[in-house]
Design a protein around this nucleic acid. Structure first.
Lengths: 257, 257
DNA sequence: GACGGCGCTTCCACTGAGTGGAAGGATGGG
DNA sequence: CCCATCCTTCCACTCAGTGGAAGCGCCGTC
């Protein structure tokens, strides 16, 4: 037959979602053909669906004619509940103001950390660990801070997998990582040295609410200045505690205009 | 027939988008029934589609069982191109740091202003003019700053409509508004006094790139302190110029870690 | 404890909306 | 001019999607 032979019959919805899902941090703009290939949707079908998505501004075309996530989708995303950002952001600002370093807030999603907020200065490179980016847990400060407070079974299964090694400094030996996590629990914060990116190191503290780490607050400095990290731990812990307090009890403080 | 009688035959995609579009700032969480009603999608169809959306975490269920925009959609939204936020945010921080007032960045979308970024202190009420929110142009500072630099025909057609009046102070007379806009162009910034919300007033400056206002930077203070606004104009203009410079020429400054 | 309202879930026979391979354009580089 | 790449359109076929209705579970009320 002409056309009609769609073998397994994926639902339209799943195709739409596959198209959207084809966009990620590494591929934020795609041609129609790339999009179709990445999502596994036949080109002609992709063409039609993308047309509808474009009309709704879920996708839009850049000056180069490539497709990108549209304004409407960004707007919709802002409706996602995010009390952490809402109440945490001022603390990130304060931490940034008092230290002058890049600071960020992350949560765990699946086996990865998801960066939900970030504050950086004008000189910082705003590309690494973008808001919305995902990274593995074991090489990042925030990841270790989060992992340390996960239940036993979760940590065990996390460590049981083959762990990525983005730099030679990354710790991937299960035993050594488990000892690291114990140390994080003991001291209340995590430190990394070039475990994710050569040239930078970090400190991170969990945001503890009801015994669980609902997020982690991290601070990243150039590894040349790694010796300054200890000095940053105290404000880091203060801010993390502040976020936790704001998170558990609603607005709390003044509603002044 | 049983069921099969879908009269006009809306495409599945349009139904999915209608479902997503049913969420807005005023209705961020909905029951399935509300969602179906608001989107015009039959309940049973909504049920099935929402199921697929939930499985993908495009939607998720809050503790109350209501549907909300999911993490995946937020994440996707972060991929939307947003150079303004990227390069502008540090300037918002600086403006906040030097003034201690709520500051925000907005763009025009259609006939409304869309707030793309915001910096506020710990004491501020983080609800009003949320990031991702939309407001009409004429009662807001950023709206006037943007409108003033739109082409003649656009302003004319904007003023030709019946304008909303959120407060008694809102200026809705076309002639008076046109004069206001001329003043904005002449002095390079806009002022409002309780035109959108009783109790607050604002100053706003356009972010000019290539003769067009690509965004507007606004600062909001309690109307009790309206007399302090003039003092805030200079840092406001500096920051707006800074954003414009960062916007037109890419990273520009140091890539130091 | 029966009743009624409300919201969610499941069922099912019918059919037209969606399908996708193929052909046709439109560019652009060699 | 030819070939490669990407985008758009076409169209006969058919099964995925449809939506009204019935059933379920939960409350609060009488």
């Amino acid at each position: 037959m002409a056309g009609g032979s769609r073998e397994p019959g994926r639902s339209v919805t799943s195709k739409v979602l596959a198209l959207l899902g084809a966009f990620d941090a590494a591929h934020p703009r795609l041609t129609l053909t790339e999009l179709a290939r990445r999502s596994g949707v036949p080109l002609s079908t992709a063409h039609r669906l993308v047309g509808e998505l474009e009309r709704w501004q879920a996708l839009s075309r850049g000056p180069d004619g490539r497709l990108r996530v549209g304004l409407r989708l960004w707007e919709l995303g802002q409706l996602a509940p995010n009390r952490l950002r809402e109440f945490g952001h001022p603390w990130l600002q304060e931490l940034f103001a008092s230290t002058g370093e890049n600071v960020h807030l992350a949560v765990r999603d699946g086996l990865e950390v998801l960066y939900v907020d970030k504050v950086y200065g004008r000189r910082a490179v705003p590309i690494v660990s973008r808001i919305g980016a995902r990274l593995p847990m074991h090489p990042t400060g925030v990841g270790k801070a989060l992992l340390a407070y996960e239940p036993e079974w979760f940590v065990t299964s996390y460590l049981a997998r083959k762990l990525e090694r983005p730099t030679p400094h990354t710790i991937i030996e299960p035993g050594r990582l488990a000892r690291e996590l114990a140390a994080v629990r003991a001291q209340g914060y995590a430190l990394t040295y070039e475990e994710m990116t050569l040239g930078s190191c970090s400190a991170a503290a969990p945001v503890l609410a009801g015994g669980r780490a609902v997020a982690a607050l991290g601070i990243v400095v150039s590894s040349r200045r790694a010796r300054e990290l200890p000095r940053l731990v105290e404000p880091l812990l203060t801010a993390a505690a502040g976020i936790a307090a704001a998170y558990v009890s609603p607005p709390a403080s003044g509603y002044g205009p």
